[in-house]
Design a protein around this nucleic acid. Structure first.
Length: 594
RNA sequence: GGGGGUGUAGCUCAGUUGGUUAGAGCGAUCGCCUGUCACGCGAUAGGUCGAGGGUUCGAGUCCCUUCACUCCCGCCA
């Protein structure tokens, strides 16, 4: 026992009654009855009720102590009478009668209450993060994060993976996100970059013969934030394996995620074995490469219907002639939904920048017919064809949109979420994982019309290498894959291209000359020509995994010291100015736009 | 870079068609209270209504500009 405490605040039970104990913690709450004062003393482990009466010389002083003051309390554990037992807390059967106390850490007037379920502005929370972190929910989230990470570590160790650290100061890479740059003092005018991910290093670890690597790796990307995306930095479970095919990586990660999610959440897994959905199928059926599979709605392409003579929906017909697609979402048995339900969704779609969503409901009196603003444009036969194609039945409704491929994917994807929410189709108590596979190696930049890597330039193209048709780069698929859970992109990975000639070839398609590749990826391209094993890996996002497990919508809720949306740390006041001396040492001068 | 939301007491919020002295709960301070666990009761203090400009006899409320926070689009291989 040290001088601060003999027990923590969640330790004392009935068996301790009669003991003299020393507790230390924060004053969570006081209930002052004038001649009798209850104090809830809180620490990391729990709460113990302490009590002081006016007979105690220190009573008057104690009454005045500010909440959140840190105190040491010496007292006797006493039994609570049956009617005063508090079942809400673990120590609720006893209380500590205060003999003596001592203030260990005084507390000023608080900018925000700690013991409260109130929400506070992000600004206050971030500025006083150390206070915010005392609050129950977020305190528990951070503890959960720690437990999840150490569980993952031990599982990875059991699976034979070795954990290695890779450099934080490395070189800038031309592909991908914007780099954070760090000026070099010893090399004036030159810059390090913080790693966007340890991508090249982990491949070099494979070339070095270590076989299986992992790391809870910090990653740095200078891009704008989102609710599920921290500005600046985040963590990945980075892993890489030698002599593996795609399925080998899947086996490891699937097992790891299933055990992790079962251990840390009560929610059910929708699939024991993650379904595999190709990128192109995902875009067609869900409008997105990160579909929420809890949502049963499916998007159908019905472009062909509009070439029929007995369909007179001229706006769509015209758009389709100029290259647009028509796609629809069927909602089951919605014939009795009020007109406002449909109109609200149409209005919502317009708010999203789409031209709206047309709709009709399939009815049958004598013949099949369609009710709704655009129902009249479809003949009985056309409706029957739509029903055949989409599985729609009498009583179901159909929402339609028509636009260019990219646009229609975007709006139908959003509409799929929106309609499911309106109809309450999403079971919040489920985790629905899936693999998205068969990503294209390249895509066309809409602005520049140039061919560029669609994801990771180091991915291995699919098929027999000798037979790949490099003249049609957009048709080349890659051994590139993502894991998606409940519509959240959890990780992406690939089987890597370990053949230098093939790498040069692919980079040349994306507009990089051999010289440039040698220059920008010198470490890796060189290494690959000295006996590189076939290898592959993946990197699940730790923050997002914890976010799903903690049932939080915002990544800040599972991050100990997050930055705000403008990538500022309001508590530490980062980023900050530096003095002339520092700049001079780095051979830098500032030119700031007004 | 673009679009939306929010901004009123230390904190969370209310504030009507533009109309007297801008309110409530929590917190703070003071007083009363021996079984509370969101203790109770009474009193007091606490406001540049984010900032600046405009319209008006009169602006928390209407208009313009701007700032902060946040959500989304772009971006994130």
């Amino acid at each position: 026992m040290n001088k601060y405490r003999s027990h923590n605040c969640n330790e004392l039970r009935k068996k301790n009654v009669g003991n003299e104990v020393t507790l230390a913690g924060w004053i969570n709450k006081k209930r002052d009855h004038g001649n009798l004062l209850f104090v809830d003393l809180r620490d990391n482990y729990g709460i113990t009720q302490c009590i002081i009466e006016k007979e105690n010389k220190q009573f008057k002083d104690f009454e005045k102590i500010q909440l959140e003051t840190v105190v040491k309390i010496i007292g006797n554990v006493v039994d609570r009478s049956s009617e005063t037992i508090n079942k809400e807390i673990d120590t609720g059967e006893i209380e500590v009668s205060i003999k003596n106390y001592e203030i260990l850490g005084a507390c000023k007037e608080l900018p925000m209450p700690i013991f409260s379920d109130q929400e506070y502005s992000e600004e206050i929370r971030l500025k006083y993060r150390f206070l915010d972190l005392r609050r129950k929910k977020i305190h528990e989230n951070i503890i959960l994060r720690s437990k999840v990470i150490s569980f993952i570590r031990s599982e990875m160790n059991k699976l034979g993976f070795l954990e290695f650290q890779t450099p934080i100061l490395t070189s800038s890479s031309p592909e991908g996100a914007r780099d954070f740059l760090v000026p070099s003092r010893l090399n004036p005018g030159k810059f390090y970059a913080l790693p966007q991910a340890p991508q090249q290093f982990k491949q070099l670890i494979m070339v070095s013969g270590f076989d299986k690597y992992f790391q809870i790796a910090p990653c740095f990307r200078d891009e704008d934030a989102r609710a599920d995306r921290s500005p600046g930095e985040f963590y990945q479970l980075d892993l890489e394996m030698s002599f593996v095919e795609q399925q080998d990586v899947f086996n490891v990660v699937e097992k790891l995620l299933v055990t992790t999610f079962k251990k840390f959440s009560n929610k059910k897994l929708m699939f024991g074995k993650f379904p595999k959905i190709s990128y192109s199928e995902a875009l067609l059926k869900y409008g997105s490469d990160k579909p929420d599979l809890r949502n049963p709605l499916i998007i159908n392409d019905i472009t062909e219907i509009f070439s029929r003579d007995d369909v007179s929906f001229e706006i769509f017909k015209k758009l389709i002639k100029s290259g647009s697609k028509a796609r629809c979402i069927v909602t089951k048995n919605t014939k009795d939904k009020p007109r406002s339900f449909f109109d609200n969704i149409d209005k919502w779609a317009k708010d999203q920048g789409a031209s709206g969503l047309a709709y009709f409901t399939i009815e049958k009196n004598k013949d099949i017919s369609a009710k709704g603003p655009v129902g009249k444009f479809f003949s009985k036969e056309a409706l029957e064809e739509i029903m055949k194609k989409t599985g729609a039945k009498v009583g179901d409704s159909i929402f339609l949109a028509c636009n260019k491929k990219n646009e229609i994917e975007k709006i139908t994807s959003l509409a799929r979420d929106k309609i499911a929410k309106e109809l309450g189709l999403i079971d919040e108590n489920i985790f629905a994982f899936c693999w998205i596979v068969d990503y294209p190696m390249f895509e066309k930049d809409e602005l520049t019309k140039k061919i560029k890597f669609s994801h990771n330039p180091f991915s291995m193209p699919q098929g027999d290498i000798d037979k790949i048709n490099f003249d049609k780069p957009l048709d080349i698929l890659a051994y590139q894959y993502d894991i998606v859970c409940n519509g959240v992109e959890l990780s992406s990975g690939a089987i890597r291209n370990h053949i230098p000639e093939l790498m040069y070839k692919l980079f040349s398609i994306a507009g990089y000359e051999k010289k440039k590749v040698d220059e920008k990826f010198s470490g890796m391209i060189n290494a690959l020509s000295f006996g590189a094993p076939p290898h592959g890996g993946i990197a699940p996002g730790i923050d997002r995994i914890v976010m799903l497990l903690a049932n939080e919508k915002n990544i800040r809720e599972v991050t100990m010291f997050p930055m705000n949306q403008n990538a500022q740390d309001l508590m530490m006041k980062a980023p900050s100015d530096v003095n002339e001396e520092q700049l001079k040492e780095l051979s830098l001068s500032l030119k700031i736009k007004k």
